[in-house]
């Protein structure tokens, strides 16, 4: 039994219209521009074939931007995923005050990223609260501030990013946990499975679709980290990321829009490979039912 073809298309219509009207042109435009030497504000442009892509792959700035982006993605996603899942499990049980905790954990996610970045710039400053706290527990802090040191800047921003996004993913996990039928736990309890066993044999497998969503969306977002960098370091101290590179080359310091578009598509291919890998990894086994 399945949906009729016409109903299926009818249901897809909102996206078809939105995509066709607003996204198709920009997406195709930027793809085509990637094969030209188009400079913003210049009347002339020429086809250059794959030249931009070749140049990018041997551009040390772009390569190091990609490296930083990878560090950012690989360094944040495990933390964000594990912490947000733990928070969801913590707050999934009924106990008084649960709603309050949920709201509290969620607040960073709903605050404007620009504002959060400004606040953390001040917290990470020389003599700021973070440095004070770190010194209190006996850690050495970078002399001129966390964001003024190549050894700490990117990690400081990553820590902020984890802090900021766990609330949202906690919420997603909470909704996913609700789709798991209670009977399964009851059955497991009767057959004597402990909490940990239940988590690994019931919760985690059944959370797969949710997990997939969290991983894919978080990767896509993290690969495109920009606003934090823009507000906090402007790409200095080894915090230049791929999108910041695209922004700087295409829109500000240089107007090499063709080059920047090509960089965007290289990034897109990387994100796509990463996402497909995640799909394949999590799809390998059929769902329990």
């Amino acid at each position: 039994m399945r949906l009729s073809r016409s109903t299926a298309w009818l249901l897809a219509l909102p996206w078809l219209i939105t995509f066709g009207a607003f996204w198709l042109f920009p997406v195709i435009y930027s793809l085509i521009v990637g094969f030209t030497d188009y400079q913003l504000l210049e009347p002339e442009w020429h086809w250059v074939g794959l030249e931009n892509f070749k140049q990018l792959l041997s551009d040390p700035d772009f390569i190091s931007a990609l490296e930083n982006t990878f560090i950012f993605v690989i360094g944040t996603i495990p933390f964000t995923t594990v912490i947000s899942l733990a928070m969801a499990l913590l707050l999934n049980r009924k106990f008084p005050g649960r709603g309050l905790f949920r709201s509290g954990y969620f607040v960073p996610s709903i605050t404007s990223l620009v504002v959060i970045s400004l606040i953390f710039t001040s917290l990470y400053q020389r003599g700021g609260y973070v440095a004070m706290l770190a010194e209190m527990i006996g850690l050495t802090t970078p002399e001129y501030g966390f964001l003024q040191d190549s050894g700490t800047a990117l990690y400081a921003i990553m820590a902020m990013d984890v802090w900021m996004s766990v609330g949202y993913y906690m919420l997603v996990f909470l909704s996913g946990l609700k789709a798991i039928p209670d009977e399964l736990y009851e059955a497991a309890e009767i057959s004597g499975a402990g909490r940990i066993r239940q988590f690994f044999s019931i919760t985690l497998p059944l959370l797969k679709p949710t997990m997939l969503f969290v991983l894919v969306i978080n990767s896509i977002k993290s690969f495109q980290v920009f606003i934090e960098i823009f507000v906090m370091t402007k790409g200095k101290f080894d915090t230049m990321t791929a999108v910041y590179f695209i922004y700087e080359r295409g829109l500000t310091t240089e107007f090499a829009f063709g080059y920047a578009s090509a960089a965007a598509y290289i990034l897109l291919i990387i994100i796509a490979i990463f996402s497909v890998a995640q799909f394949l990894l999590l799809r390998r086994k059929a769902p329990l039912w």
């Binding site: 399945r2 920009p26 930027s30 791929a242 578009s261 990034l267």
Partner: peptide, 29 residues
Amino acid sequence: RYRSLSNKLLFISVILVLMIPVHIVIIPM
């Protein structure tokens, strides 16, 4: 619920929009 090739393409278009850096689409937009 409607699994077909065209629907897969549709899903790809959904994800594609997420993957393009905004700074590149903002000018055509």
